[in-house]
């Protein structure tokens, strides 16, 4: 279990993350959603161990972050940051194989093949990373991170992703989420920052709504799919339209009251 307790992080006395407690079980997908500047990325960095929090406690499989050595931590969790820049002329395949840093050499070839197949990066794997499009880069980075935790292990592991779908088209977004769903069957827990509510609703097991650094609500998808709650968090009118999918409805931007009435009358 990846557990966070009472996380608190301030920059110049302004709280960015305030008293956040969360839990992620292996085998489930937790999506973190919230408006821009809600503190999602900061929370993400605290969870990944990248920045230490001033107060609070993060533990992986009941071991505190502070007690885990860097290379031990890397064995139980992989992280896909929002942007990664590569300054040297590496090919896509070379970037992907960097994810094998801690994996036994004998397994490299097989893992690379499987991961490159599932992320569909084969056709440009020999191109220079710098020459890829934004979406292709994102898939290459995803493939790299998958390499790190692809090999099956007896202990639960976690994958943290910060907006992995931001430059992907519709088909690719769903392809990525489907890969993550598959990954949960390997006893891996997934934490993902998303902006697209419908995508989150369709694939997540649980959703956390963050606003102004505080956790507004944390629960299963049905509990989160609440017009009033979403309107309050995103400060935007929201309409839930019944739809035959996992969440039971899809989220649409609500029309302003006046416009909505006009539409009804017409």
């Amino acid at each position: 279990m990846l557990a966070a307790k009472n996380l608190h992080y301030c920059i110049q006395k302004r709280p960015i993350v305030d008293e956040v407690s969360l839990e992620v079980n292996p085998g489930e997908i937790l999506s973190i959603l919230g408006p821009n500047g809600a503190g999602k990325s900061t929370l993400f960095k605290i969870l990944s161990g990248e920045i230490p929090c001033k107060r609070g406690f993060v533990s992986y499989n009941h071991t505190g972050l502070g007690e885990l050595k860097v290379h031990d931590l890397a064995k139980i969790r992989a992280v896909l940051p929002q942007h990664s820049q590569v300054n040297f002329p590496f090919s896509a395949k070379e970037v992907i194989s960097l994810g094998l840093h801690q994996v036994k050499v004998s397994k490299h070839e097989q893992i690379l093949q499987e991961v490159m197949e599932i992320t569909r990066v084969m056709q440009f794997s020999d191109k220079l990373y710098q020459h890829l499009s934004g979406g292709e880069k994102q898939r290459v980075q995803l493939a790299r991170v998958l390499c790190q935790i692809w090999e099956r292990q007896p202990y639960p592991r976690y994958l943290l992703l910060d907006e992995p779908t931001s430059s992907l088209d519709l088909a690719q977004q769903h392809a990525v989420l489907k890969i993550l769903k598959q990954l949960t069957q390997r006893n891996i827990g997934v934490v993902i920052i998303l902006h697209e509510l419908n995508l989150a609703a369709q694939y997540s097991d649980r959703i956390a709504l963050l606003k102004d650094g505080t956790l507004q609500k944390w629960g299963n998808v049905k509990e989160i799919m609440d017009e009033e709650l979403l309107e309050r968090v995103f400060e935007h009118p929201v309409q839930l339209i019944p739809y035959p999918c996992a969440a039971g409805c899809i989220v649409a931007s609500g029309l302003q009251n006046q416009a909505y009435q006009n539409l009804n009358q017409a």
């Binding site: 860097v70 290379h71 820049q85 300054n87 970037v95 994810g99 801690q102 790190q148």
Partner: peptide, 12 residues
């Protein structure tokens, strides 16, 4: 070469 944070995540 991927970045210091990335290297840290990978166990360096």
């Amino acid at each position: 070469s991927l970045g210091e944070q990335e290297a840290f995540h990978m166990g360096v």
